[in-house]
Design a protein around this nucleic acid. Structure first.
Lengths: 217, 217
DNA sequence: AACCAATTTTTGTGATCACAAATCTTGATT
DNA sequence: AATCAAGATTTGTGATCACAAAAATTGGTT
């Protein structure tokens, strides 16, 4: 009889914890990270942390410098444009694929997420905003039922998220807006062209906002 | 003074060794892989192997089953189409970006690679063919000077390579052809449209050949 | 022979140890 | 005060150990 243990390994929970930290802006670019430091803060031994760091390095969320130190990569203007370019290719495509699988219940959930996101923005809760924005997009993207494209897009989000946070810290969120409502309206109307455009607009607007703070790039 | 050691870590060489094995068809889908077995065959301790496996799992080249065993993922018809779709989106784009940076010397090198690749095909040297095919494409892609897109495409190749080899083992290479010469001719003529089309054709032809062996999917 | 439970072996996981390289600290010299 | 070399500390790396879970083997029963 095969008895598969379904408890999360320390490795897996460590990975998820660190991934969330990166994705929701709790790790800033350039800040050095030590394995033992991370291990202590998470209450585990260095071993699973090392493996987690390898995973996230493979996903380009972390960077192994040539002196073997681990860090969140610094953003450059060039890399920023590359990420923006890749997102514009992949995400509208993924959203379009997802559309036929998005039912009324999902639309309702998206609207709820958006309300929470706006609330977080209003309260200057950066991490809350980033989490809401992530949830909105990936609730859509997951509906595409396309693991290959989804994991590519996950990697892209891991790469720009820390920088997103850095910009918010400098500029605040007042000038920030999104096209989420336009997207949900397009979904309600089952207008695939309007939906794809809303995702593209949302993405471009967000990236333009970030890119506009050229003091950092 | 910063003194950085430039010797390759065991981790890095292990990663490259295993990655090449996967990329050039020396690991077949479904075959179970053990950490200790890999470690012994590479002459290292299990530690760097574990970290390598985590990296390649993050790149979707390996799969951690729910019984915690490591394996090359089995191909399914669905996943095959997803990979094909993603490749068709990303690779012609990357090739087009690369074109302006491809000089005569690079074209010469591409032609040399293609000759070697054809020779390997003629001699029924599967691994040699796969290596040549990889070199041809990535010599182009690297010229795009776009690390973000390049790493996404790397991940895709790691995903279909083992299956490519599996098909060749069943069908042989006699029916296999490529559009490499058409691509190099387009480069010589600086015809970007013809070049993009050649890359697309090459990719479609290769994937159709693989996909045609529907006994496996 | 076929089946199944008990035992043995193999395997992944997480922690710890040893070591060398990189970084930080210290204190003497100019 | 600034500089720099020597010593101390921290850090990443690779190997090993202990353990539990999974797989393979064994041997007895039908």
């Amino acid at each position: 009889m095969n008895q598969v243990s379904n408890t999360l390994t320390v490795n897996e929970s460590t990975y998820r914890a660190l991934k969330e930290k990166i994705l929701f802006g709790e790790m800033l670019p350039g800040r050095p990270v030590t394995l033992r430091g991370l291990a202590e803060s998470l209450g585990v031994s260095p071993t699973p942390v090392r493996e987690t760091v390898r995973r996230l390095t493979a996903e380009r969320a972390l960077n192994l410098q040539d002196n073997r130190r681990v860090s969140i990569p610094e953003m450059t203007a060039k890399r920023f444009q590359e990420i923006r370019h890749a997102r514009l290719i992949l995400e509208p495509e993924l959203a379009t694929l997802a559309m036929i699988n998005i039912d009324k219940k999902t639309i309702k959930r998206l609207i709820d997420i958006d309300i929470k996101t706006d609330l977080a923005l209003y309260k200057n809760d950066f991490s809350g905003y980033m989490r809401g924005n992530y949830d909105f997009h990936f609730t859509i993207y997951r509906r595409a039922n396309n693991d290959v494209l989804l994991s590519l897009v996950e990697s892209l989000w891991l790469q720009f998220a820390p920088y997103m946070r850095q910009v918010y810290n400098h500029l605040g969120t007042t000038a920030l807006d999104d096209q989420h409502r336009m997207a949900t309206k397009a979904l309600e109307n089952r207008d695939s062209i309007a939906f794809k455009n809303a995702i593209m607009e949302d993405l471009q607007q967000g990236m333009t906002f970030i890119g506009a703070s050229n003091t950092l790039l």
